[in-house]
Design a binder for these strands. Structure first.
Lengths: 131, 131
DNA sequence: TGGATATTACTACCGGAGTAGAAGGAGCGT
DNA sequence: ACGCTCCTTCTACTCCGGTAGTAATATCCA
């Protein structure tokens, strides 16, 4: 059973950067966050990464003077556990309720709707195969 | 614009009790939480409710000796904002990704799948109407 | 009326997220 | 060799969620 990995806001933002680039220095992460509107001191990012390493969420190796950080949690794993956790806490696990709120809370392009239908069809297929 | 209402774990659990009963005393809330496995001291629940009142999440009126608390946030409102907030933080707002993880992370009955299809059809309809 | 009981009010504490300054080391250009 | 810049390390502080004890107060019952 995959352990439940909950990440707080900034931690998640940092992870997203690491996931995107596979690995990154403190400066890299900081710049990426800056580009999305989060102005943080260099040391703030460094401190966070150190704390996250202590918890096993990331690792680093030294390369020259700087540290290069890599994620230790998969995006899939984190996403899945955070999503299902929220679904549980909010709706007692009723997925349709969750999806319903998701749809209501956001504008959807026709393209996205098409993709959603495809997802469901695939899921139905799996369902059929399983029995 | 409905403001984004984020609730932490215990706060949400308390809210769920209030939503279910419309209103409740501290003892009521405590008992409900106890019934779902959270053993908390009476004063813990009271403190939490007081803190939540300071933030405008609940109100109370005195009736006899005890306070009766009522929620000040709608379940819809909170659900929607928490779900869309997570979708943003996790997938940059890509709803299909979110749904995808939701589907992968849980077993779905044929019934649920049917309901999901209905949801999407309804959404397509809205989309069409809107333009 | 007086004591037991239920309820609120106040205060305190812990841990974790988030934030950042100050200090110290390493490398580089000139 | 010197100073500048980039980097890590250490330390500290604030805020909030969660948790609960103790004190004060109201209520009810015998």
């Amino acid at each position: 059973m995959g352990k439940s990995a909950q990440l707080a806001a900034l931690q998640l933002a940092i992870m997203r950067v690491l996931w995107e680039r596979s690995e990154a220095t403190v400066a890299d992460v900081r710049e990426a966050l800056l580009a999305e509107g989060r102005e943080l001191a260099y040391t703030t990012v460094a401190t966070m990464l150190a704390k996250m390493e202590r918890k096993g969420q990331v690792t680093h190796r030294a390369e020259g003077k700087a540290f290069i950080y890599r994620p230790m949690l998969g995006q899939e794993q984190v996403s899945r556990s955070m999503v299902t956790d929220l679904a549980t806490r909010l709706f007692g696990g009723d997925v349709t309720l969750m999806v319903s709120h998701l749809l209501d809370g956001s504008e959807l392009s026709r393209d996205e709707l098409t993709r959603l239908k495809a997802l469901i069809r695939r899921k139905e297929q799996e369902e059929r195969d399983a029995r």
